[in-house]
Design a binder for these strands. Sequence first.
DNA 1: ATCGTTGACGTCAGTAACTGTCATTATATT
DNA 2: AATATAATGACAGTTACTGACGTCAACGAT
Lengths: 183, 183
Amino acid sequence: MPRSGEDARRRLQDAALALFRERGYDHTTTAEIAAQAGVTERTFFRHFPDKREVLFESQEKLATALTQAIAEAPQDLSPMAVLQRAFQQVAPRFEANRSYSLPRQELIERTPILKERETSKLGALSQTLAVSLERRGIDGFRAQLAARSGMAIFALVLDAWFKDPSRSLADYFSRAFVELGRL
Amino acid sequence: MPRSGEDARRRLQDAALALFRERGYDHTTTAEIAAQAGVTERTFFRHFPDKREVLFESQEKLATALTQAIAEAPQDLSPMAVLQRAFQQVAPRFEANRSYSLPRQELIERTPILKERETSKLGALSQTLAVSLERRGIDGFRAQLAARSGMAIFALVLDAWFKDPSRSLADYFSRAFVELGRL
DNA sequence: ATCGTTGACGTCAGTAACTGTCATTATATT
DNA sequence: AATATAATGACAGTTACTGACGTCAACGAT
């Protein structure tokens, strides 16, 4: 068996985040990232389909975790309750990695083209959640609506928690779902 | 006064949509679009900051229309009622232009990179709506949540209406807001 | 220990999106 | 007709991204 490539991949991700934060996203070339990681530019594009994607592996993992959490939820819960439960289950991921996810989020927030990729990923994620809800027997339109409103909460809560971590994510989620009920 | 440039702009938009639909987005170069419009590639990028943006001028107009509709809504309405009213007001735009907006939407739907731009624009739009709601005295978090849930409805309704135009947009909107209340 | 397999990596050439700069052209106004 | 001004053309340059092909490193089998 040949070498794994996992090392190079991680080095590329680290180098990218570091350089993006130092010089800004568009003043960093993929060649520079590759050089700092000790590989060629070509190798960068073997690991990531484009320059932005180097920052979004965690989001992929989040998607699978949420999908699994929904699939395992008890059958008698309402759509929104299922989502709330799933969100609470993945919350520790963020609270354990704030030192990584916070600077990453700051970078994304101040870089329009990265923000675009992030919103797009969240949109795709809500689509995935909708499918998961449908698999539980929920009507298509209701599932879509619940998933999208749920993702709205998810994004808002994370945003609030990044700005003020004094309250727990669980707390933020609970309050947000109550708020949605009032609208 | 010099020439206006509006003609070239419209020709570029028409050429782009036509070519994208014929050959697909990524098998069409900006140079080809420019040639078909009778201008240079450089002129393309004077009118649009990037290749995708040539398809999204209508979305900008939608944003201003919605913002205005919210600002003009009676003061005693709930956030969701304000949004519903605003959506109903802009609905005729789509029903009058289905022959343009449907093929455009089909193209966006089958082109990931265009879909990404669209979701991003909708995200930005919901941010704008949130600000409009805040200006009406609605609390920040509630405004954000209402705006995002509202945009979820907006996107879902349009999608449904594109697939089945036998029911009116007004009808779709009414039912969707009722559905959201039930979640 | 050697060998062969396999997938990661390097090298190189090429395309196309996008930008900066400066000269030129078209039109409304005087 | 002369002029001011914004749109356009011309051209060089950077950088993201791709295809093709050869090389190398790690592991299993012998």
